[in-house]
Write a protein that binds this DNA or RNA. Structure first.
Lengths: 186, 186
DNA sequence: AACATTTCTTGATTCTAATCAAGCAGCCAC
DNA sequence: GTGGCTGCTTGATTAGAATCAAGAAATGTT
């Protein structure tokens, strides 16, 4: 399972993979368990082996603002907190019982020290696209949904549409109508 | 002028400042001159000593999509291209004749090697807020303009409202109306 | 199974910003 | 100066998504 995690990032040889397996921790997390809390400084990357997780922040009014939905074989973390080592504005929690890999910053440093291949982690950390950041919001609800259908259709099986709508920054009603319209078009 | 650049990032002692001055390059750029071109991998951070610059990308239709407006005493660069060392999707150009400092990645590495204080550059590079990314687009046109008024009012003196509107992802008409409404409220 | 709760859909209405359109002011070139 | 741009404003209309509202379907609980 650790091999999958590396394969999504780049190319690593057997020696690299062995190093990685020694650094990474396997965690079994229960539904609702919190992996990163607002105010804490992110210290780890996570990889979803199996299960589902999501990232969200709380607006002043207390509303849940979903910034990331994560499925099997996806890395997830708070990029800004991790890279800048500043307190997180968001929470990361398991949406379902999950098996996740946890890789600390210290481990990444150790790995880079031992093998240059691990420099490839830089692009992962630098990419804000892991979250909802992809949606720069010049996109219409239809385009957002089309993107999900195209690139991450399984989201719709795993998470309630309500959460997907929150993630896409549209209302559940609008999502429902977009889906209805698209279904009729087929 | 180099001292200003460091002061916006954190605290540095006299030795650090001397190291910095040896690494940084002073460039005089003309209006319209391009500092980063689409397709190139970003290799430098820039600091606007004096003048104005902006970042933009071209949509398939050829429209200019402004993602950053930069004034005196502001750092600017393409964070994703720089951090991940991937080709840039955007251009950075001078909007007016300017004096800018240029600091290469290699220089940053050298500086970090010589003084731990330069670790502070990590937060700068990690912060995507330098661009328009601040606007997560849950904000209304009024809120966007209020933010500019509050935090970067000089933008309105330096750049045409047309560009500010593009930066805020609203139409010039909407910006005009927001301004008119706010002026009447005073 | 019966009930309660949550999620999803559908319809009617409202609201906001985009679009379409026109006019004005400032500025440059000639 | 005159003519032609460009930027800015103002008005009328349109379009699209949010909101408000209600009911149906699915899910969970006892």
């Amino acid at each position: 399972m650790q091999a999958n995690a590396l394969d999504t990032i780049g190319t690593f040889n057997a020696t690299d993979k062995a190093l990685f397996e020694k650094e990474v921790k396997i965690r079994h997390v229960d539904k609702g368990e919190v992996l990163l809390r607002e105010g804490m400084v992110a210290n780890s990357l996570f990889f979803n082996v199996n299960g589902a997780a999501f990232q969200y922040s709380l607006s002043p009014s207390g509303a849940e603002n979903i910034t990331g939905l994560y499925m099997a074989n996806e890395w997830f973390f708070n990029p800004s907190s991790l890279a800048a080592q500043t307190p997180s504005h968001s929470f990361i929690a398991a949406y379902a019982d999950s098996i996740v890999l946890e890789l600390s910053i210290q481990s990444i440093h150790t790995l880079i020290y031992k093998s240059a291949a691990f420099f490839q982690f830089n692009s992962l950390i630098a990419q804000p696209t892991t979250g909802a950041y992809f949606f720069d919001n010049t996109l219409t609800p239809f385009q957002k949904y089309a993107y999900i259908l195209e690139h991450r259709p399984a989201l719709l099986q795993i998470f309630p549409l309500k959460m997907v709508a929150a993630y896409l920054k549209i209302t559940p009603e609008t999502l429902s109508r977009v889906r209805e319209k698209l279904a009729r078009a087929d």
